[in-house]
Every structure is written in structure tokens, then in C-alpha cells.
Design a protein around this nucleic acid. Structure first.
Length: 1014
RNA sequence: GCUGAAGUGGUGGAAUUGGUAGACACGUUGGACUUAAAAUCCAAUGGCCAGAAAUGGCCGUGCGGGUUCAAGUCCCGCCUUCAGUACCA
């Protein structure tokens, strides 16, 4: 069978599966259910590369395995089709994102089909489809109509809250709400205007509109969530991000902080992933303490994890942005404080983060009063205190905290010592669990735990504080100033948001003249002419009709990318349902996802938000489950090998250059490795008097070399002051298969000119032999790096079965690994050998002739049965453990053994085909049908392992001397310990190795090993 | 800095509860078939040393210790790489 025939067979079975709906899942079945889900792809214009299907192949193997095991398997696929790239493309070309998205999806589908996945395509969903986003909007409305009751620890309808307000005001309500909610009584509430009531309710809703400080990305023209920012720049595009106050929709995910934490215990997820969610939620226990400000009617609330150190407080520090700063600063300090605030505001978040070594701050002139001693405590501001965490203020205990200590030392603030046996003047810090507290009034003689309890009690008595749990988790900003996303089902009446009626969903995206923000800085929906809501007719009408009586303006923001992906797994259960997200029966049957496969990069984004929404919908009785994904597996990334051709860059002097590439250096180790690169290069310069070679990753512009000095040793940065190192060359990505092309002369380079326009201009560097200098690096596969390997090409050359098996054979599923085509022939050969096992004749695979199919009804040999059953056992274990690479090896061993045994027996070859079918479904189907079956192999029962075929009567014992294996000896397994010992001792080789000595001890582990200690 | 994962031949990677390190594959070398090539098949393949050979010896799972009859696996102390996260009070 030639490779051409492989393709024919694969095409045949792909058509067969599609025609017969082989993988369509039933919503009711006598079989137990199993739900296998992949993280659905964003259909980008670049198409799939070989890295994308890795997880899909693994989950497909598992889904197919579960079908063989008798489960009713739901294994759907869809598209996360709202998003930035389609919109960016639309901005550039004017093409409607709807159009490009549709084209991209068609391309994805074609590529996916070629790999032979067992998806139930009848359940496909697309997040940008109005029939789908109707339900995204619907969930948003449920959130808007809900509040979180900490007493019951669940979300409830907002009407219940209104009832409570009407009957008892808000003072007894323990709800998740804005921090600046004012207390009011029932009488107050009933006297409030309806507008004021609505404003107050908005402070309690689980999705709310509020002025929040957001991450604004000017280049993308939108806000970004924290998890969409990587190293201070946008994840997409790498553009700078600044802090900005804007009115935004937010999701009150903080209400669920504790439950999101607790829920992790009950789900089977990789520990590293759980850890990153735990860190992201960032629970810390401590106390909130209130300090009165002297001579003011103000108080400062701080959060501390160490209330026991309260007698060590010698100053307080506020974030420069803290509200109180302007109120309490004395006239004498005013100028200094304002200058400082201005200076810090100018610095980007990134600079501030990077510059952790510089200690800066200003005294406000004001003092706070110690709640117990009554002493005056100077109030400072300092940018080491973050406005966004806790209360934006800290009580500074220099003897207990490194940063407070550094600050105090820098500004000569006293450092009182409250720890016994610790000499703080030498900068020694106490181990909190071992040290006794002193100089602390009623806490003297106590240790951390006891002191903490006692001081919290005392604070509560005084009304100056209480025990508190603080979370790092922030509410999630939910608006984006983009076109290609779900519109909010919201219109504005007197500036207050109102929901459109549920019956009129979906609110579909309007047409716009262009996809850019408007000249006034409004989101792209501001360009829509027909984007107002008529409450009488319940329809979208032209903006001209807005009269704020019956026609109101609609929301211009759209929802973020994670909106559509948070509950899609439930939509697959009943994707065409027009009356509900999914029918109750469907949800009761399928429950939640049994196995979810996807990348770990979604740890603090999608996977957290999804858990939040599901918990919420569970609270509100929509979903029967509280967690979306019971088990989760992270597949590692497949990396690409990039080739770079080196070229001279324009001449640049370090000294005169002062732009920094902020995205490159994020830590000391980054700076170190970056610098080593330069240093090595500089040495080369000295040596060769040549341009400096920088690794391509660092061939960016640098500014502010001064800043680097924080990271470098003195002996290092002397290099930075030399101006003679003026030029470097950057390197350009060339196609990863450049080896095949071999850039050896100018002519070859010509062929790449279409590839990158700058090739025409650039001057390239040549090796001594005249070829161009080409280097290689392993990095993420990406179109822009020209290192993408297309699965279609692999399917074309080797077939989908080879691609599937090879991707599995590459290594453990969770591990990141570079794509390397070198080994693919091994897997391809295996499939050929497998084919040959079922055929008779000399090399039937070569020459395209096939060979004569031959499977007999003869009884299988003992050896063949042993091979089969050992394979069944191993493969079953491997699949259950997601160790797909080792089962491919097992198949290879099995086929090699059966070939040697010349096995042609149906008794063995039939189950073997079933075993292999999850991995190589096409060839297995073909063999299955050749063996006379008319039904697909897909639901054939998984072969049953029988121990009796593996029972051995003897074992080849390794005989070792002092732990070193010397020879093996075949002995019956039923021999007793003593018999084994005497048999071994009687052996001539034993005598040889003992060389006359008497053994001190002989260890016999029956069935395992013999060790002679001499 | 903190958290997590990992370090095994030329390469990708195997090694149940501690029990024959290097399965399986790639690559390499040699051979068969062929006019030749491809394809296929067979054999060898961790390193070093001795030997004509059969064979034998030593060293070997990042480094240094330890526990054990026995350590890639367990314990202690380091190093390196990768990923996440970061002035979190």
C-alpha cells in the first residue's frame, strides 16, 4: 500500500462516518454517559498548525476508548469565534468580521476533518452566532438580576434584596457589594427616589456598572483584564497598557472567592493549575485595623496579616492614590506630597514594578493615633503600597517586615523592636512561629498565634478592628470597546442601565460603517446608526428616534472574549434549544464535563470565569452542577523550530539610544541573561572588531540603560558606558524548512523576498564558506515566525493515522516538546507493518499492489495470545493514565512480536484492531471491514483482558552481587525462598563471582530478584 | 524573591510499591536484495579499558552527602533549565 492508498482509505472512512453519523451522541441511552471536551478553538486566519490537534487527538483517543468501553460519549466541537484578530483584520481591510470568521471556520473544519476526529458535529456551536450568544446575553441578565447573600452563601434574585431593603434597610444584610455603600433604614429606602434605589441596587448586582480603574490599551483601543496582560503589555499584540479610570461593566467574582477556592478540592485537576488559581485568588487571613487620624475627623483602615505586631508600628504608609492623602496633608508638606504624587503618576505600572529597589516616599505631616498606646504615628505616602490591594494603606512594622524596614532605614524612622532575642539593628528578622513578643503591653510573652487571637479580640472590643480575610482576586472588568463581541442587552434611561426584556433576545450586533472607535472616542458601536431601543415595540430602531421617553440609547460596549466561553459546555448538551440554555433533561443527563483537555494558559482566565458562572447558575437553579469540569488535563505546547538568517542592522550607539524594550526585561534573571548576551557580543567586538551579534529576541531598541544598573554588578555595567559598540545585527525569521532550501547564495535569498519585504534592503551576513549565516531556535509556533508545520501536509505525506500516532508518540501529553519530523517514519513504518500483519505475500505494501488479505480462523498460538493480552492490559492502563506515548510503543512491540510469530489468527488480530482503533481509526476500520464486519469498529467492545494467558511457570531471576546484576537464572516461580537460595548458590557462576568468599547474606525476593552480599 | 514542573545515550523518550537503567523509536554503522537508487529485511549501537574472539572489568540517570542487601526512584544540602507570579502588607 503506497501512501496514496492510505489517503484513499482515510477519505473513505471519513465519508463513511459523516454519512452514518457514527459519532452522534444520544441525549438518552441505557449506557452510562461520558462527556469528553476540548477547549474550542478560535478560528484564526492562519489555520491549524500541528500543535493545535495535540490535545484533540488525545481527547479523541479517550472518547473512542470510552465508546469501546460501552459509554454513551458526548464529544462535541465548536468555535470561539468572537475576538480581536477578526476585528483587527476588519479594521485593516474593511471586511466584515462575520465574513472572515465564516471563511476561517470553513478552513478549520476542513483541516479537522482530515485528522479523523470522532466529533459529533451535529452539536457544533459558534459563539458569534446570534442563536448562541442569545444565551450569553441571557446569563448576563441573570447576573444583573442577582445579588450575593453571604449569609446563605449563594446568589439570590435581586427582588429578594429589594424586599429586605423595604422591610429592614441594608444594615442587617450581609451581601457582596461596593465598599462605599452607605447604611440606610427601611424608612430611608422607602423614601428614596426610584432612581436612587436603582443606583443602590447597582452596587449589589453581580454584574454592575462602575467607575473603575482599568487597564487601558491605547493601541488596541480597549480595556484588558488582568489575565490578558502579560509582562505589562497586552497579550495580543504586545502593546503598552496604562491605568485609566473608566465607567465599565464588572463581574462581582469576588463574591465567589471562597467558593472558587473550596471547589478546587473536589475536582481532579493538575496541581500546578490549582495552585495558580489559589495564588490568583490569593486568600490571606489577618485583621482590619482602624486608626484615627489626629486633628481630623478621618480614619485610616488597614489590612494586616500580622495584627500581633501592632505595638511595633512606627509609621503608616498610604498609597499615593489613596483618597485621604489630599485631606490630611499639612500645608507645610503639601508641595512635596503633590510633587511626589505627580512623579509616581507619570511612571508606568511597569516601571514601578521593575524599580523595586528604589525607596521613595514623602511624609504627609499628619499623624494617626495608635489604638492601644495612643501614641502619634507619622503618616507617610509611598509607592511600595499599592492602591489596588487591601485598603491601599498599611500599618508599617519595620522590625517585622522587610519593606517597612527598608523604608524606615531610608527615612530614618525609628525601628522599635517587639521580638525577644532578635537584634533588629543588624537587620535580623524573627521567625514568627518561634519568637516571643515583647514591648507589647498585653501581648507580652505570647507567640504569633495566641497574640493574634488576643489582639483581634481587643480590637473588636474597642471597635477599632476585626479579624478579616482578604483576597487578592479583583472583580473582573466585563466591557470591551470593540465591535466583534456580544452586545449587552442593555439600554440607558436617565443614565441608568435597564435590561431589555428576555423575550426579545438575542440583541444582534448592528452594522457599522467602520470598525474603529469613533472620533469622539466611543466604541465602534457608536458608529451604528440603528442602535437604540424602543420600549414600546421592543425593537432596535434608528438612533434618530431617541427621545428618552420611549426610545433609549443602547450600550456601546461589547462583552469580552471569555463571555462566550464560560458556559459553552452546557450548550453542547442541547445546542438547538430556543427556550433554554439547554433543556433540564439534557443537563440532568449529561451533568458536567468528565474530561476537559486544553492548555494551561487559561488557568486564571477562562477556567476561573467559567467556574464562577457555573457556580452562579447553580445557585440560581439553572444548572444541576456546581463545577463545569470534573477532570482536566493540560496538553503541552508543540513548539516549532525557527530558522533565522542574520543581517546587519542600522548602526546604533548604546549611549545615544535610550528607548527601553520594556517587554523584554522583567526580572533580574532576564536582565542577567540579556546582559550576558551583550557582554559576549562585546567581547566578540573587541576580538574581531565586528558588529555585535545579539540573539534575535533582544534585537530591540534599548532605552534608559541607567535603569539596568539596578540589576547588574558594577563590574558588568562598565560595558554599558562604552560608546564604541555601535552596531549589531538582528536576525530575520526564514521558513523553518530552510534546510531543504539551503540558503547558500544570493539567488536563494531572492526566493525569500516575497516572504519578507525587508529582505530586499538588508545586508546579510555570510559565513566563511559563502553561505548565509543561519541559526535555529525552538519557540512557539506562529505564522509570524515562519515556523509553522501544517497538519495537512503531514496527512498528505503520511496519512492522518500517522499524524495522530506520531503526535502521541512524541512524548508525554502534558510536556512541551518541539516538533521534529525526524521520527515520523518510525510510526509510519509501524502502520505499514500493522497492515502487513493482516496480509499475505512478499512486501505487499510496496509497489502499490496491496497484498492478499489473510486472516484465518485457526486457533492462535499460546505466544500470540500472551502478546495480545499483555498488550490489552498495558494499553488499557496507559489510556486510563493518559500515557499515550507508551501505548504506541506497546503497539509496536505487539506487532513486532506477532509478525515474528507469523500470527494470522482472527482470535488475536480482531481484538488487536479494536485496541489500535482509537489511535489509528482509519486503518483499523479498513482492517475491521476486511475481516468481514459491516458495522463500524467504533462501538466494538474493548477486548477483555484475561490473566490466564500471562501466567508464567518460571521467572528469569536477575542474580546480583552487592547490588550489581551479574547474570540471570531461569527458575520455577513456585520455588520457595530456600529452594531459590540453594539453586542460586549451587550455580557455577555464583561460585565464580564469589571467588572463594562466603556470602554474608543472601536476599531472595521471590518473583523479583536475588542479591548476594559478600 | 515566591510557587510549580523538570534535569536519564548522538536525539525523542521508557522504567508498577526502591528490585536486570536506557523499553520503543529516530539517527548512525555494517550486511542482504538491486545494474543502481528508493523501499524492505537482518545485525550492531551508553561511555571507557583488556582481549584474536568468546568474554571480562570499571564508570554511568544534573552535583555533593545519607538511608538500604539494593536508589533514576526515598531523605538532607546545592546547581541548572522552563513555566507561572510578584512591593499582596
Amino acid at each position: 500500500m503506497s501512501k496514496y492508498d492510505f489517503n484513499k482509505i482515510e477519505e473513505k472512512w471519513q465519508k463513511y462516518w459523516a454519512k452514518n453519523q457514527t459519532f452522534q451522541a444520544k441525549n438518552n441511552s441505557d449506557k452510562p454517559k461520558y462527556y469528553v471536551l476540548d477547549m474550542f478553538p478560535y478560528p484564526s486566519g492562519a489555520g491549524l498548525h500541528v500543535g493545535h490537534p495535540l490535545g484533540y487527538i488525545a481527547s479523541d483517543i479517550y472518547a473512542r476508548y470510552k465508546r469501546h468501553k460501552g459509554f454513551n460519549v458526548l464529544h462535541p466541537q465548536g468555535y470561539d469565534s468572537f475576538g480581536l484578530p477578526a476585528e483587527q483584520y476588519a479594521i485593516q481591510t474593511g471586511q466584515h468580521p462575520k465574513k472572515t470568521t465564516k471563511e476561517n471556520i470553513a478552513r478549520y473544519r476542513e483541516q479537522l476533518d482530515k485528522i479523523g476526529f470522532s466529533f459529533d458535529w451535529s452539536r457544533e456551536v459558534r459563539t458569534s452566532d446570534p442563536d448562541y450568544y442569545k444565551w450569553t446575553q441571557w446569563i448576563f441578565m441573570q447576573l444583573f438580576e442577582s445579588w450575593y447573600d453571604y449569609e446563605a452563601d449563594k446568589a439570590k434574585p435581586i427582588s429578594k434584596l429589594e424586599e429586605l431593603f423595604t422591610s429592614e434597610g441594608n444594615t442587617k444584610v450581609n451581601a457582596a457589594c461596593d465598599s462605599n455603600v452607605e447604611p440606610f433604614s427601611a424608612e430611608d429606602w422607602n423614601a428614596f427616589s426610584s432612581e436612587k434605589q436603582q443606583k443602590i441596587l447597582l452596587q449589589y448586582r453581580l454584574t454592575y456598572l462602575a467607575e473603575t480603574e482599568v487597564n487601558w490599551c491605547p493601541q488596541l483601543g480597549t480595556v484588558l483584564a488582568n489575565d490578558e496582560i502579560v509582562n505589562g503589555v497586552s497579550e495580543r499584540g504586545g502593546y503598552p497598557v496604562v491605568r485609566k479610570k473608566m465607567k465599565q461593566w464588572s463581574m462581582r467574582i469576588t463574591a465567589y472567592a471562597q467558593r472558587l477556592l473550596d471547589g478546587l478540592d473536589g475536582i481532579d485537576w493538575p496541581q500546578p493549575l490549582k495552585d495558580s488559581q489559589i495564588n490568583w485568588i490569593g486568600r490571606s487571613e489577618g485583621a482590619s485595623v482602624t486608626f484615627d487620624v489626629k486633628d481630623h475627623d478621618e480614619t485610616i483602615e488597614v489590612f494586616t496579616t500580622r495584627p500581633d505586631t501592632i505595638f511595633g508600628v512606627s509609621f503608616m504608609t498610604l498609597a499615593p492614590e489613596h483618597d485621604l492623602v489630599s485631606k490630611i496633608t499639612t500645608d507645610a508638606q503639601k508641595a512635596d506630597v503633590e510633587a511626589y504624587i505627580e512623579a509616581t503618576a507619570k511612571r508606568s505600572e511597569r516601571e514601578r514594578m521593575a524599580d523595586v529597589k528604589t525607596i521613595s516616599g514623602v511624609f504627609t505631616g499628619a499623624y494617626a493615633e495608635h489604638p492601644f498606646s495612643g501614641e502619634s504615628i507619622p503618616i507617610w505616602i509611598g509607592d511600595y503600597v499599592l492602591a489596588g490591594y487591601g485598603t491601599g494603606a498599611v500599618m508599617s512594622v519595620p522590625c517585622g517586615d522587610q519593606r517597612d524596614y527598608d523604608f524606615a532605614r531610608h527615612f530614618d524612622i525609628p525601628i522599635p523592636n517587639i521580638f525577644e532575642g532578635i537584634d533588629i539593628s543588624e537587620g535580623a528578622f524573627a521567625d514568627k512561629d518561634k519568637t516571643v513578643i515583647t514591648n507589647s503591653d498585653f501581648l507580652n510573652g505570647l507567640q504569633y498565634k495566641a497574640a493574634t487571637n488576643k489582639v483581634i479580640e481587643a480590637l473588636e472590643q474597642k471597635g477599632a478592628g476585626k479579624g478579616k480575610i482578604n483576597y487578592r482576586l479583583r472583580d473582573a472588568v466585563f466591557s470591551r470597546q470593540r465591535y466583534w463581541g456580544e452586545p449587552f442587552p442593555v439600554y440607558y434611561k436617565n443614565g441608568l442601565p435597564q435590561l431589555i426584556d428576555e423575550a426579545h433576545l438575542p440583541l444582534t450586533l448592528p452594522e457599522v460603517s467602520a470598525y474603529l472607535p469613533t472620533e469622539d472616542g466611543e466604541p465602534p458601536l457608536g458608529r451604528a446608526d440603528v442602535w437604540a431601543w424602543d420600549i414600546q415595540n421592543n425593537e432596535v430602531v434608528a438612533n434618530d428616534n431617541v427621545d428618552n421617553e420611549t426610545v433609549f440609547p443602547l450600550e456601546l460596549n461589547t462583552m469580552p472574549g471569555w463571555a462566550g466561553s464560560s458556559c459553552y459546555m452546557f450548550r453542547y448538551m442541547d445546542p438547538k434549544n430556543d427556550d433554554a440554555l439547554a433543556s433540564q433533561e439534557a443537563m440532568d443527563y449529561w451533568q458536567n464535563v468528565d474530561l476537559y483537555v486544553g492548555g494551561s494558559e487559561h488557568a486564571t482566565g477562562h477556567l476561573l470565569y467559567s467556574r464562577f458562572w457555573v457556580k452562579f447558575l447553580y445557585d440560581r437553579g439553572v444548572l444541576p452542577v456546581e463545577e463545569p469540569f470534573k477532570k482536566l488535563i493540560n496538553q503541552g505546547m508543540i513548539l516549532g523550530e525557527s530558522a533565522f538568517v542574520a543581517r546587519f542592522s542600522k548602526k546604533v550607539s548604546f549611549a545615544e539610544k535610550d528607548k527601553i524594550s520594556e517587554s523584554v526585561l522583567k526580572s533580574r534573571s532576564d536582565a542577567k541573561s540579556w546582559f550576558n548576551n551583550i557582554k559576549n557580543s562585546i567581547e566578540k567586538v573587541i576580538e574581531f572588531d565586528n558588529p555585535i551579534l545579539l540573539s534575535q529576541s533582544y534585537s530591540l531598541d534599548f532605552k534608559n540603560i541607567e535603569w539596568l544598573k539596578h540589576y547588574l554588578k558594577e563590574e558588568d555595567y562598565k560595558y554599558l558606558n562604552k560608546e564604541k559598540y555601535v552596531a549589531y545585527y538582528s536576525v530575520d525569521n526564514v521558513p523553518a524548512h530552510v534546510d531543504d532550501v539551503n540558503i547558500s547564495n544570493e539567488l536563494d535569498l531572492e526566493s525569500f523576498k516575497d516572504f519578507r519585504p525587508e529582505f530586499k534592503e538588508a545586508e546579510y551576513i555570510k559565513e566563511e564558506d559563502g553561505t548565509f549565516k543561519v541559526s535555529r531556535e525552538v519557540e512557539k509556533m506562529s505564522k509570524s515566525k515562519y515556523n509553522v508545520v501544517n497538519p495537512d501536509d503531514i496527512c498528505e505525506d503520511y496519512g492522518a493515522d500517522t499524524l495522530r500516532m506520531y503526535e502521541m508518540f512524541l512524548g508525554p501529553l502534558e510536556q512541551a516538546k518541539p516538533w521534529n519530523t525526524a521520527g515520523i517514519s518510525g510510526v509510519h513504518n509501524f502502520l505499514k507493518k500493522l497492515w502487513k500483519l493482516y496480509h499475505q505475500g512478499n512486501s505487499p505494501l510496496e509497489g502499490g499492489k496491496g497484498g492478499v488479505f489473510q486472516v484465518t480462523d485457526d486457533a492462535a498460538s499460546k505466544d500470540s495470545l500472551k502478546t495480545l493480552h499483555k498488550t490489552i492490559k498495558k494499553v488499557e492502563e496507559d489510556i486510563e493514565n493518559f500515557s499515550f506515548n507508551t501505548s504506541v510503543s506497546t503497539f509496536m512491540i505487539a506487532v513486532n512480536e506477532l509478525t515474528t510469530q507469523k500470527c494470522t489468527s482472527r482470535e488475536v488480530l480482531e481484538p488487536l484492531a479494536v485496541l489500535i482503533s482509537p489511535y489509528a481509526p482509519h486503518i483499523s476500520e479498513e482492517l475491521w471491514s476486511l475481516m468481514g464486519h459491516t458495522e463500524s469498529i467504533a462501538t466494538a467492545p474493548f477486548p477483555k483482558f484475561e490473566e490466564r494467558h500471562l501466567v508464567e511457570s518460571s521467572k528469569e531471576y536477575p542474580i546480583s552481587f552487592n547490588g550489581k546484576m551479574r547474570f540471570t537464572l531461569e527458575l520455577p516461580l513456585d520455588m520457595s525462598k530456600d529452594e531459590i537460595e540453594s539453586a542460586v548458590m549451587a550455580h557455577e557462576k555464583t561460585t565464580h563471582y564469589l571467588d572463594g568468599r562466603t556470602p554474608k547474606k543472601v536476599i531472595v525476593v521471590p518473583g523479583k530478584i536475588v542479591n548476594i552480599v559478600g
